[in-house]
Design a protein around this nucleic acid. Structure first.
Length: 873
RNA sequence: GAGGGAUUAGCUCAGUUGGUUUAGAGCGCUACCUUGACAGGGUAGAGGCCACUGGUUCGAAUCCAGUAUUCCUCACCA
């Protein structure tokens, strides 16, 4: 025993077993028609990413599901990989080049991409290495990247497929423009936050009069692009302006005053300025009323020539400068503080400008229909189910998806222009194919006449194929037919629209099958104060530090215990401490058992009982653990296992069979104990893979290649509920006796006599264990002599004679308190029973139960009264 | 503005078609314990008018309505 330290040292153990598992190829999976697959595809982290707490949680959960399936004998396949993260990665590469003095604009597309790939090779994929520290049992040979050759091809093919089906189109639309990244982004990539800004009230002269109309705006620089003033047709204040024109301040342009019911008469002055180039609603108005569109902004957010003044100034500088100019011109009436929602780019955090541009879109409605149905009908199940509502709402209000990005890093749009017009293009996978297609339209096209679209696609246009393309599913049916549909997806609710919904759409569109059966939504990890973890707040612990401090097992258990599906987790290091402590507890149980001297002697009746009980206890708990797993209630499963090991196995079972000092244990009990311990380690293995493997290996001499990771999940045997209940009673009796000792200050070493009134209860089968753990001699149906302490467990009454140790007044006080409680209880029961309507209407067994409560309470009260009478002499 | 959750012990949460001896767990807290696996431990405790107000019912933490607080999603008016 001396070779095992009293503290568990996880560092060596974790590294050792991970390597061992890798060396033996236990994480790998190959299609095997004789085995049922259980497949999970990882939510691919950004190639630029580093591990954060969200990854820890969500990969722990995936690993648990995979390891459990592996133990159950399934063909467990967890596919890892990375996302090229178009906009995020391009931003990083651009920044790095800038640090080296290279401007993106000085590079050709190919030169830039070469730099980007260099960057990817050098820095990408750190996160996957970090996942190994966590114990993630991914099939690393399957690691995929969304820009791998085959994957890239599949993205182009699906684009072409959708285009040919009429679901992808190109058009001028108002899109969300990121002036920093210089690209369009989708609606989902815009984050709106409430921000304090200024509302400017500006007056416009009505042409040919001395009259003015006043409008309010938060973006005064857009005045330069105004092409109309709009009023409500029925607004009586402005009837006289119908058909008139107004003069735009500073630039003195004459614009029409139009009427439209869109205007809210109640808001502001009831007068609206219309800037079709820079606002979605204004754009619609412009279309409707056939207004001129003046785009006053350049792509980078500076004012263009069309603005006439402040040309070249940044939009925010212009905003600051234009206010005094308006004031000087006598046009600024007032400014006031104003809270409004401002949209910012998810990636660059710069303020989004609505911008009119030519982009590619996916028609979503036809794709959404089967995907919505799948969730509504339970073909795809969300855990927790509350996300069904969110999903339904989004799917039924879905808008077309802008998929083109003005970037270079990503999948280039396979459209080829052969003429000058915007409509003169063909969609094809390669230049050769494009040429062929173009020639079918215009016979004399030359290769040099073809120009490929400069844009790439939205990252999510490749991610939505993930469950198919990681198996090269568009080109190789063998793998796909075996692994697809996958089983579980584990992800955060923040990407339900970005990714989950779109994968479901892609699954039905391209495979006509769901991509996965279950979606487990994790919560968002917050700090102790409930704030989101963020780099700028510095409140996000480094997961690797945590693992170093508490062990991977400890962090896994800690995260899991406080993380029911879909609930946010206020993270505190202390929850990992609990995991670390648990590992130590297990370690010490191992030390205890391995330290026993095994003797060739017969198994005692009490040990046989203890073993029998523990087996059944394990079986009953395993039944509920299996159920919790199947319902994805992983935190409940974790808690069950925790208590099963700590309380039942360590505190009760091991204490019950523990040999007296200096003595050994019989071989039969010892062997049974090793088996029980091994089963417990198997059940815990998915959650704490490392220590369970270590303990399992140490319990017996294992053969070469024998490993818990590929061991067996225990069977949930039948159990006898009565016997389990009898042991629960035994525990309570022991607790009561210990409480008496604590109150009377009696040493556990002093043996006591325990009297039980009346007939023996079922607990007496454990009387030997009771004697041992409470250090008492049990006497049934034998009147206690003299004063003593007493207590009731269920309907059983017990007394411990304590001649000379008893303080009568103290005891009387205690009994009176108990009497008061029992009488109160009886009172409540009587109230029910004396209610005729209750007796007449309630089901028979409910009434019978109340009557039993009454009888029990009455007998207890009688007994207490009797004791009080004795004490009072 | 619309929709959807949530509200139970100091904290995080269970509580499964309304009835399991007047509500459970883990952590934290208090007292005692250098016992021979473990102080990263043991034993025993304290702690709740189940957000509020009504209603349905013989019976409500559980069902219904309203109020308050809070979170999420979507949509936004200058």
């Amino acid at each position: 025993m001396s070779e095992l330290s009293s503290k568990y040292n996880p560092h060596e153990v974790e590294g050792k077993w991970y390597q061992h598992w890798m060396d033996n190829g236990y994480f790998g999976s190959k299609p095997d028609p004789d085995k049922e697959p259980l497949t999970i595809v990882i939510p691919p982290p950004n190639v630029t990413g580093v591990l954060h707490m969200g990854h820890m949680l969500n990969n722990t959960i995936q690993d648990i599901l995979i390891r459990k399936a592996r133990l159950e004998g399934k063909n467990a396949c967890w596919v890892p990989g990375m996302d090229h993260a178009s906009i995020a990665t391009e931003a990083k590469v651009v920044k790095r080049l800038r640090e080296k003095g290279i401007k993106k604009s000085d590079l050709s597309r190919d030169e830039f991409l070469a730099h980007a790939w260099d960057w990817k090779e050098e820095y990408g994929g750190v996160i996957l290495e970090q996942l190994k520290k966590l114990g993630a049992s991914c099939d690393w040979d399957r690691t995929r990247f969304t820009m791998d050759e085959k994957y890239y091809e599949s993205v182009l093919d699906t684009f072409i497929h959708l285009y040919e089906k009429g679901l992808i189109y190109r058009g001028y639309r108002m899109v969300n423009w990121d002036p920093e990244a210089l690209t369009a982004v989708s609606d989902e990539e815009v984050i709106y936050t409430e921000e304090r800004s200024k509302l400017y009230h500006v007056r416009y002269q009505v042409e040919g009069t001395d009259e003015y109309v006043t409008i309010a705006t938060t973006r005064p620089e857009t005045i330069l692009g105004d092409t109309a003033i709009c009023i409500h047709p029925e607004d009586e204040r402005y009837t006289h302006l119908h058909g008139k024109r107004a003069i735009v301040p500073l630039v003195n342009r004459s614009i029409p005053i139009i009427q439209d019911e869109y205007v809210d008469r109640e808001f502001g002055t009831g007068c609206l300025k219309v800037t079709p180039a820079h606002d979605v609603n204004d754009y619609d108005l412009g279309q409707k009323h056939n207004l001129e569109t003046i785009d006053i902004l350049n792509a980078n957010g500076t004012l263009s020539e069309a603005a006439q003044i402040l040309v070249g100034e940044d939009r925010f500088t212009a905003r600051k400068k234009i206010a005094p100019m308006l004031e000087e011109a006598g046009s600024l009436i007032k400014t006031e503080e104003y809270d409004n929602k401002v949209g910012r780019s998810e990636r660059t955090n710069s303020i989004i400008e609505p911008r009119l541009s030519l982009q590619w879109f996916v028609k979503m409605q036809p794709l959404a229909e089967p995907a919505l149905k799948a969730v509504e009908e339970g073909e795809v199940k969300f855990h927790p189910a509350k996300f069904n509502n969110t999903y339904r709402h989004w799917m039924t209000n879905i808008k077309d998806w802008c998929i083109s990005r003005q970037l270079w890093w990503g999948h280039r749009i396979p459209a080829w222009y052969y003429g000058e017009g915007e409509e003169e293009f063909v969609v094809a996978k390669t230049a050769d194919e494009a040429l062929e297609k173009a020639r079918a339209i215009k016979a004399d096209i030359q290769p040099a006449d073809l120009k490929q679209d400069e844009d790439v696609m939205d990252t999510w246009f490749s991610s939505w194929l993930w469950p198919i393309s990681v198996f090269d599913g568009f080109y190789d049916r063998e793998e796909l037919d075996y692994y697809y549909p996958t089983n579980d997806l584990v992800t955060g609710p923040d990407i339900i629209f970005f990714w989950v919904a779109r994968m479901i759409m892609a699954g039905y569109e391209f495979e006509n099958k769901r991509p996965f059966e279950n979606v487990y939504f994790t919560g968002i990890i917050r700090d102790k104060l409930g704030r989101k973890m963020s780099k700028s707040l510095g409140n996000s612990p480094d997961p690797i530090d945590l693992i170093n401090k508490y062990s991977a097992d400890g962090v896994r258990l800690g995260l899991l215990m406080t993380a029911p599906a879909g609930n946010d987790i206020p993270f505190d290091d202390a929850i990992c401490e609990q995991g670390r402590n648990f590992a130590n507890k297990i370690w010490n149980a191992l030390r205890l058992i391995k330290g026993w001297k095994v003797e060739d002697k017969a198994q005692s009746e009490d040990n046989a009982k203890a073993v029998q009980w523990m087996r059944q206890r394990l079986a009953s708990e395993l039944t509920s653990i299996n159920e919790n797993f199947s319902k994805y209630r992983l935190n409940d499963a974790a808690m069950s296992i925790y208590k099963l090991v700590w309380d039942e196995f360590c505190s009760w079972y091991l204490e019950a069979i523990k040999p007296a000092y200096g003595e050994g244990i019989d071989a039969e009990t010892y062997e049974s104990t090793l088996d029980l311990f091994a089963d417990l380690m198997a059940i815990l293995h998915p959650i704490m893979p490392f220590i369970t493997e270590e303990v399992w290996q140490s319990l017996r001499d294992r053969n070469e290649g024998e490993c818990l990771i590929v061991g067996a999940w225990p069977k949930a045997e039948a159990f006898d509920a009565d016997q389990l209940q009898a042991f629960e009673t035994t525990k309570q009796i022991i607790s009561e006796i210990r409480a008496v000792r604590a109150q009377k200050n009696l040493s556990p070493k002093d043996s006591l006599k325990l009297h039980q009134k009346g007939e023996a209860g079922g607990y007496t089968q454990f009387a030997g264990i009771l004697s041992k753990l409470a250090n008492v001699e049990v006497a049934i149906n034998e009147t206690a002599s003299g004063p003593g302490a007493s207590f009731i467990v269920g309907t059983l009454e017990f007394a411990i004679p304590l001649e000379g140790l008893i303080d009568a007044s103290e005891e009387i006080e205690k009994l009176e308190e108990e009497l008061k409680y029992q009488e109160g209880f009886l009172n409540a029961v009587m109230k029910k029973l004396s209610n005729e309507r209750f007796v007449n209407n309630a089901p028979e067994q409910v009434v019978a139960a109340e009557q039993k409560k009454r009888a029990d309470a009455e007998s207890r009260i009688a007994s207490i009264k009797q004791q009080l009478a004795t004490l009072n002499g």
